[in-house]
């Protein structure tokens, strides 16, 4: 799916230079579910930003779907994000002025998709996360778990090859967290590649593979083996929560 080789990224201020990623190399195959763990400040988020093309990096190479994305300009990177990548954020990042339907619609709009197809995709994405009945609700009218599921629907609606999740359950209680994890596993089961950043070893264990980042480097890098990803859905997807 993607391959990072010797990626280095530093943040500079006037006084000091902080290396967020140091010669960071990671290869993720199609259909994998990888958990990236590590203490805070280790560079997990920077890795995710680089992987999601939210940020550029200083040196090294990054190939996504066999395309070298390090040389792309801003517009092309936007296109790649729009077509290939889905994001799930810790704080959901729904747009408060827009209702559930319109929120899921946002990335599709930028893909200039015709209205009929957009509606179809939004409906099926919301179906998948079990929120078809809340289409007209505003984010502020939903519980945290429901908001995160809207965010997942938004990430899925574009049919991305790569799903990047940043502490997706960080703002949720354990029951809702489990529901969200179930959903992610279900999506992975449907063929999506998922890279999840988390500091929770419990959650990390549910991934196929764990990668630990410390000081901007991978400490226990296990190269990907082509057919090791056997998909098991450990928990059936939960029905819509009764609260919210």
């Amino acid at each position: 799916m993607f391959e990072m080789t010797q990626v280095t990224k530093a943040y500079r201020t006037d006084l000091l230079e902080t290396h967020a990623l140091r010669e960071f190399s990671l290869k993720v195959g199609k259909g994998e579910f990888v958990a990236v763990t590590g203490p805070s400040g280790s560079g997990k988020t920077t890795f995710l930003n680089v992987a999601g093309l939210l940020e550029t990096f200083d040196s090294g190479s990054y190939r996504l779907d066999d395309v070298d994305v390090s040389k792309l300009d801003d517009d092309a990177r936007s296109r790649v994000r729009n077509h290939k990548i889905g994001f799930i954020f810790q704080s959901f990042n729904l747009i408060p002025d827009l209702n559930v339907f319109d929120n899921v619609d946002v990335p599709l709009r930028y893909r200039r998709m015709p209205a009929g197809e957009r509606r179809e995709r939004i409906n099926s994405a919301l179906d998948l996360v079990g929120l078809s009945s809340r289409m007209k609700h505003l984010p502020s009218q939903l519980s945290g778990g429901q908001q995160q599921r809207v965010a997942i629907a938004r990430a899925l609606a574009g049919d991305p090859a790569l799903l990047l999740a940043d502490e997706p359950t960080g703002n949720l209680d354990s029951l809702m967290a489990r529901q969200v994890m179930d959903l992610l596993e279900q999506i992975n089961g449907m063929g999506a590649t998922i890279v999840m950043v988390t500091h929770d070893p419990e959650l990390a264990r549910r991934a196929h593979r764990n990668v630990q980042v410390i000081d901007g480097q991978i400490t226990d890098y296990k190269p990907y083996e082509a057919h090791s990803a056997s998909v098991t859905v450990l928990h059936p997807p939960a029905a819509d929560a009764t609260y919210g």
Binding site: S78, N82, R111
Partner: peptide, 16 residues
């Protein structure tokens, strides 16, 4: 800004 960042993250170009 957060909302703008999110839009950018899900694929909006600068011109968008």
């Amino acid at each position: 800004t957060k909302q703008i960042g999110t839009r950018r993250a899900v694929g909006a170009r600068r011109t968008d």
